[in-house]
């Protein structure tokens, strides 16, 4: 017992790994319940009409990709499914282009043509400034696409000049850069925004969802599993959902046990 207490951290780490391995190898396949926010996001994007332009702000970094990769793929796949819409993809982070290249071949299974149906501008440096510049005048902020082709040579960009030409704004929220989108795009141009958020920023986006500035959101792996359910596919997220249940379940049981132990002892936990 004393050895266990002395090596408590190592025991917990080993237990986590064992539980995840077990849950991954023995999936339960429980159904996914779709939340209100995910439904609103799905409905908001499904309501796009032919000719509408979606601006997908592909602001992603490698470090948090595991949590949101499935969600991004599901949303991107959904956008490619919708007939007749155009997709403008940009990135305010250096990692964005590499992540985009890894995803595009997996998600573009519906015959969309680059240059006509979707365009990728690549990394536009400047953080909040780059978002503001792109919203104001896309062709001045970024005169060529990720591959060096002038935007004037891409048919899709003929009628897309600023955020005023955008019907929906889809973003990826990793942290405080969420406020860039709200301040520089949503507030001035009144475009409906939907976001794929990481779990640790969830509570901060709540006021914006409640106020309607954010039309809908999906959170991490759970959100990805929900979105996959809505678009009728089974991808990366569903694989991780079972392991989530077991790890959280173990965590909660341990917390309850610790609390029972705490309250059993004389007041003050001594």
């Amino acid at each position: 017992m004393k050895t266990l207490q002395k090596n408590e951290t190592k025991v917990i780490n080993a237990a986590i790994i064992i539980v995840i391995v077990f849950a991954s190898l023995v999936p339960t396949g429980l159904p996914i319940t779709v939340s209100e926010a995910t439904t609103k996001m799905y409905q908001g994007l499904s309501g796009l009409k032919p000719g509408d332009v979606v601006w997908f702000s592909f602001d992603q970094v490698f470090v948090v990709l595991p949590e949101v990769k499935a969600s991004i793929q599901a949303v991107l796949q959904h956008l490619f499914m919708i007939q007749g819409i155009k997709i403008l993809i940009t990135s305010a982070y250096a990692d964005g282009p590499a992540i985009y290249e890894g995803m595009i071949s997996v998600t573009n299974k519906y015959g969309k043509v680059y240059g006509t149906d979707y365009v990728f501008l690549g990394y536009v440096v400047g953080n909040e400034m780059s978002i503001a510049n792109l919203a104001k005048d896309i062709k001045t902020a970024c005169p060529v696409d990720n591959y060096g082709t002038p935007l004037s040579q891409l048919p899709m960009m003929n009628n897309v000049n600023s955020a005023s030409d955008i019907a929906r704004y889809v973003t990826i929220t990793l942290g405080p850069q969420f406020y860039w989108y709200i301040r520089q795009v949503v507030a001035p141009y009144k475009i409906p925004m939907y976001t794929i958020s990481v779990g640790y920023f969830l509570s901060e986006i709540m006021p914006f969802f409640a106020s309607g500035q954010l039309g809908g959101y999906i959170v991490g792996l759970k959100g990805g599993a929900e979105y996959e359910t809505l678009i009728g596919t089974k991808g990366l997220a569903s694989r991780g959902a079972d392991a989530m249940s077991l790890v959280y379940g173990l965590l909660m049981v341990t917390i309850v046990a610790v609390n029972i132990n705490y309250w059993r002892k004389p007041r003050g936990g001594k």
């Binding site: 926010a37 969830l202 509570s203 709540m206 969802f209 959170v219 759970k222 249940s245 959280y248 379940g249």
Partner: peptide, 25 residues
């Protein structure tokens, strides 16, 4: 957040939504 949670009781989904969209907001 976890699938087994809403499997145990379906009410966790609307309850969680309410806690986030009303109390946390």
């Amino acid at each position: 957040a976890m699938p087994v949670g809403t499997y145990i009781w379906a009410g966790f989904s609307p309850l969680g939504d309410w806690v986030m969209n009303v109390l946390t907001a």
